[in-house]
Design a protein around this nucleic acid. Structure first.
Lengths: 231, 231
DNA sequence: GAGTGGTCTAGACCACTCG
DNA sequence: GAGTGGTCTAGACCACTCG
């Protein structure tokens, strides 16, 4: 039998029973290797998996720390559109891209005063002429000046903001819902009214400031998340 | 700079451009190590990440294969029902729990001969008298003898199987879809026909054997996944 | 400067697949 | 039996943190 699963489950038990105090590092990798009588690489492998599962985080030079009790809230990850539509020819249709005044709703989600400038971008992303995703972005206009001068049908908006405009995104919060498409969205995606879809709501932060709020509607009949894990 | 990210991105490009034909293995790990002039462990690390991201899958003894062009990407995690229905009083209604003969469909998903015994369990899980989740489980009867003698309205089926019946679950594969509820499911969840819901399909393995196949329908108007990360 | 995690090497043995 | 991926070792050097 492999050794690292035993190390992993032993450490997991200790973490769940608060054997290692929060805020303090776990024993170092060489120490754990010694305790379990394995090479450092084998100890690392166990920790690698615990890190991926959210039990610990590592800081190079400082140590490995318990994440505390917040881990394991439902987690999902969404990859860039181009990656998951791989194989097919992808294209993007820009329906709107302009500066608008923040409505009260935008003011709340963006945390800015009503009337402030907001860049509104409305796009449809297709794979092989089939529309798959609707995207509505609201971006703090003050923080992303010059964004509208780029070709939004070709360039990745996120990349432009990070690489060309120098905005550092420090945190992303998102939620995933299952919804029935309304007439407007159904028409754009060319499916019947009420078709089930994923709705992803995403807020991007730069420090404490909210840079962008995005809604994605993803066709439920064309997309699935997939996961595999060892319990 | 580290070497494995370059290997990874090179392989990813090749996979996206169909450089490696579907159905055939990629070059073996020793061959890739040689090509990129690194040790086998470094080549493996690049492939490890591609596997985790769903670009390739590996079969011990046979090779590493491209996963092909399915629009299936991303990762999500589902918490146990009791955790996310927290705060509310949860209850479970068992609609059916009996042994049936495997239909051809069950035979395929369970990888057993048609006609073999399958434990079928149909439950509805509620929070505060409101139905939230429908569950249909198909379990290899041979591997889970005695399961039906437990109180399935109270006990966790997974825990009974692992702790009481001694079945070791080694791997779980699952997918997450957005679907419109059909009449039967809508009635059980007391929502209108066609309401959007999450459909989770889960297969549990014990080694190479498939222990269980489960479908969960989760009300889209009552559940959302949440995630937050640093890019 | 001592200690930490990040990466890498050149081997080794094993379980498994396949013709 | 040859080849594959799965695991492991005992080292090494590096970038980074911290007192």
């Amino acid at each position: 039998m492999a050794k690292y699963p035993l190390i992993k489950s032993t450490l997991k038990e200790r973490l769940l029973s608060s054997h290692y105090p929060e805020g303090l590092p776990l024993p170092s990798e060489p120490q754990l290797a010694k305790e379990f009588e394995v090479s450092r690489m084998t100890a690392r492998r166990a920790i690698d998996e615990l890190e991926r599962e959210g039990y610990v985080y590592r800081i190079q030079g400082a140590g490995t720390f318990p994440t505390g009790k917040r881990f394991r809230q439902g987690v999902f990850r969404v990859r860039p559109f181009k990656e998951w539509a791989r194989g097919a020819e992808t294209s993007t249709r820009v329906l709107q891209a302009r500066i608008v005044d923040a409505t009260p709703e935008m003011g709340i989600v963006m945390q800015i005063p009503v009337g402030d400038g907001v860049i509104f971008i409305h796009r449809v992303r297709c794979a092989g002429d089939e529309p798959l995703v609707i995207e509505k972005r609201y971006i703090n206009a003050e923080m992303a000046q010059g964004l509208l001068e780029h070709n939004l049908a070709v360039e990745s908006i996120h990349e432009v903001m990070v690489e060309k405009l120098g905005i550092s995104m420090t945190r992303v919060e998102q939620s995933l819902e299952a919804v029935n498409l309304r007439q407007e969205e159904a028409d754009l995606l060319q499916v019947p009214l009420g078709t089930a879809a994923f709705l992803i709501r995403r807020t991007s932060y730069s420090g404490v400031k909210r840079v962008a709020y995005i809604n994605y509607w993803v066709r439920g009949d064309r997309y699935a998340f997939q996961d595999s894990f060892e319990p």
